[in-house]
Design a protein around this nucleic acid. Structure first.
Lengths: 135, 135
DNA sequence: CAGAATCCTTCACGATACTG
DNA sequence: CAGTATCGTGAAGGATTCTG
C-alpha cells in the first residue's frame, strides 16, 4: 500500500529542500507564509476555543479587506494549515480552525508577532539614531 | 541622564503594542519582518563566522536582485538588526553582521525557514488533495 | 566590489457592487 | 453571514546602466 508515502517522503525531506535556492518549492512556501496576514490569522486562530468565524477574524484583524482575508484563508486551507467548516444554519455559519500542521507553524508566528511588539521601542530608537546620524 | 529611557520604555512596551490593531506601529514592523528576503538574510547571517560580505549574501540568496538586497539590508540596518561595516580596501569591502537584536529575531526566522523546508511535502500533499477534491 | 539611479512592468491590494 | 466578481491604481520589484 501507499499509505506511508507521505511519511517516507518526509523522512528524506529534511535534507531535500533548501529555501536559499530560488527554484526550490520551499522558497515559494516561505514566501507565502512570510506574510503579515498569515501571521495574524494563525495567531488569532487558536486564541480562545481554537475556532473562529469569518466575521470574528474580520473584526480581530483590524483593517483587513474581505478580499485579502478570504484569499489568505483559502491559501491556508489549501496548504492544509486550517480547516473550513460550513454549518448550514440560516444564515450560514463558517468556522475556521487550525490543523496540526497549522498549529506547528503558529508557534513560530506567535514568536514573530510577540517579537515585533516587544522590540518595537528598540527598533524605534534605532531608526531615530539612524535617521539623525547619531552613532 | 536619559541613558535608561529605552529600558524604561521597554518595561511598559510589552503591554503597549498590539499588532492586531491596524494603527499600531508593531503592525508595520510585523509587515517589514514578515518578508521572504528578511527571513533569508537573517538566516544567512550568523551562519558561519557571523559576518558576510555583500557579494556573499548575493550568492547565497539565489535569485535576489541587487535592488532588493540593498534595500532590505538598509531597512534591517536602520531598524538596528544588522550592522554595516565598510573597510576601505581597494576595492572596498563591506561586511554585514547581526546585532543582538537581529540575533534574537533570527531564532524565529530560522524556525520559520526550517518549518517550510520540513513540511514542504505535507503542504504539497494537501494542495494536491485540495485541488483534486479528494477529501 | 558594492552599490545608486532610472525606467518600466505587473500584480498586490483596496474599493465597490452583487449573491445564496 | 460569508463570501464572489470586477475594476482601477499605486507601489513593489526586476532589468539595466552608471559610479567611487
Amino acid at each position: 500500500m501507499a499509505t506511508q508515502t507521505a511519511a517516507q517522503k518526509r523522512a528524506q525531506a529534511k535534507a531535500q529542500y533548501d529555501a536559499f535556492l530560488a527554484a526550490c518549492p520551499s522558497r515559494q512556501l516561505l514566501d507565502r507564509i512570510s506574510n503579515k496576514w498569515v501571521t495574524l490569522i494563525l495567531c488569532a486562530l487558536g486564541g480562545d476555543g481554537g475556532s473562529m468565524r469569518y466575521s470574528e477574524l474580520s473584526r480581530q484583524l483590524a483593517g483587513v479587506s474581505q478580499k485579502m482575508l478570504t484569499q489568505t484563508l483559502r491559501s491556508l486551507e489549501r496548504d492544509g494549515l486550517i480547516t473550513r467548516t460550513v454549518t448550514p444554519t440560516v444564515p450560514v455559519t463558517v468556522c475556521y480552525e487550525l490543523t496540526e500542521l497549522g498549529l506547528s507553524l503558529r508557534q513560530m508566528m506567535r514568536g514573530v508577532k510577540s517579537w515585533a511588539e516587544i522590540h518595537m521601542d528598540d527598533v524605534l530608537d534605532n531608526r531615530a539614531s539612524y535617521d539623525t546620524g547619531t552613532a
